[in-house]
């Protein structure tokens, strides 16, 4: 069984049935089930979640990407501050980066003000944070491999034999 492909399939569509996955891999359904269980036990598979296009709902929300420059601590490097940051539910993604800044994170809130206040009150004053840069997202075109913006209109003919 192509295990990498199994994971890629699940990553792309967590909704697939065992039968469908087995068909795509050309593998036995029981082997696929066993391998998925193994991945769950060992923490390779962390969970399955739905991709929501919130733009299409009435929910008021904004997304911002925040760059942080931080002072690494002796012995712990950037881990100490990262381990504090992961606790905030407002922070959806958190990465340690190479380049012009150290930490990159994605924040969601109900309004610009809410996000700005969160950064100003919780993040900026945190020990070790040297500076913050906030960039608000205007439009989401694609996220984790999924294209947003909805289905294109069906331009096919109304009737045909072929």
């Amino acid at each position: 069984m192509d295990k990498e492909k199994l994971l890629k399939l699940l990553e792309k569509d967590g909704d697939m049935t065992l039968e469908e996955i087995a068909e795509q891999l050309g593998a036995d359904m029981r082997d696929v089930a066993a391998q998925i269980d193994k991945y769950k036990e060992t923490g390779v598979l962390l969970g399955v979640h739905a991709k929501v296009d919130w733009e299409k709902t009435k929910r008021e929300y904004v997304t911002a990407m925040i760059e942080l420059k931080v002072q690494p601590t002796r012995g712990h490097g950037f881990d100490a501050i990262a381990e504090r940051l992961v606790n905030y539910p407002e922070i959806k993604s958190l990465y340690l980066m190479s380049g012009g800044y150290d930490i990159w994170m994605l924040i969601e809130g109900r309004s610009l003000r809410e996000v700005a206040m969160f950064v100003a009150k919780k993040i900026a004053p945190m020990e070790g944070v040297k500076s913050t840069g906030t960039h608000f997202v205007l439009t989401k075109y694609k996220d984790e491999g999924i294209t947003f913006g909805g289905r294109k209109a069906d331009t096919r003919r109304l009737y045909s034999y072929d």
Partner: peptide, 21 residues
């Protein structure tokens, strides 16, 4: 199927399950 085209052309909100494409 020509005549179905003609009927459908005068209607709104037609849903099709007829295309072999």
């Amino acid at each position: 199927i020509r005549k179905f085209f003609d009927i459908a052309a005068e209607m709104d909100d037609v849903i099709s399950l007829s295309i072999g494409e």
